[in-house]
């Protein structure tokens, strides 16, 4: 058991990775801003002015974070950002979520909801098939009535709804 509590990713590593991503984000923003004029004219700041400096500040601050990260290295290398056990738990939640998002993107939110809810209940909650399918189906139908009929807010539809001619 104790091996599972070992650190998988150290806090130091994560600080550096996040700092680098922020740095990259800053550069992307600056590049985007450079598509337009970044100075001042008689009408004040031009369209690129604010994004440019916002990007620049992100770059500077992320360098600051990186430097700070390396200075605190001795303390943060030992500290766990994520333990093995924690990683497992997060992934047990995150992977189905990502699958749900991807599935809904292709199949529509109703099919995605049904499959996700039923899947999680059966494989992670340990419920029996009939119960899980009934609950997931009930919730999905309730959502359909709630969104499509009452609020008239259409959710994302996929090929199944098109096939059934509902939408």
């Amino acid at each position: 058991m104790s091996t599972n509590e070992r650190s998988l990713i150290s806090r130091f590593a994560m600080e550096v990775v996040t700092g680098c991503i922020a740095l990259l984000a800053g550069i992307v923003v600056v590049l985007g801003a450079l598509e337009y004029e970044i100075g001042w004219d008689e009408a004040g700041p031009q369209p690129g002015y604010f994004p440019f400096y916002v990007g620049l500040i992100i770059i500077v601050a992320s360098l600051g974070v990186l430097v700070q990260g390396f200075l605190n290295r001795s303390r943060t290398t030992g500290e766990a950002f994520l333990t093995r056990e924690g990683f497992k738990r997060v992934m047990a939640f995150f992977l189905p979520l990502a699958a749900f998002t991807a599935g809904s993107y292709v199949l529509g939110l109703y099919v995605g909801t049904f499959v996700y809810l039923a899947g999680v209940m059966i494989f992670q909650g340990g419920y029996r098939w009939p119960f899980a399918l009934t609950v997931a189906g009930g919730i999905t139908v309730f959502f359909f009535v709630l969104f499509e009929r009452w609020f008239q807010v259409p959710l994302l539809k996929g090929p199944l709804e098109a096939f059934l001619g509902i939408y």
Binding site: A22, A25, G26, V54, G55, I57, I58, A61, S62, G64, V65, Q68
Partner: peptide, 11 residues
């Protein structure tokens, strides 16, 4: 960290 606050605001 002030750097982190700044990154958060600017993002």
């Amino acid at each position: 960290s002030p750097f982190k606050t700044v990154i958060s605001i600017m993002l």
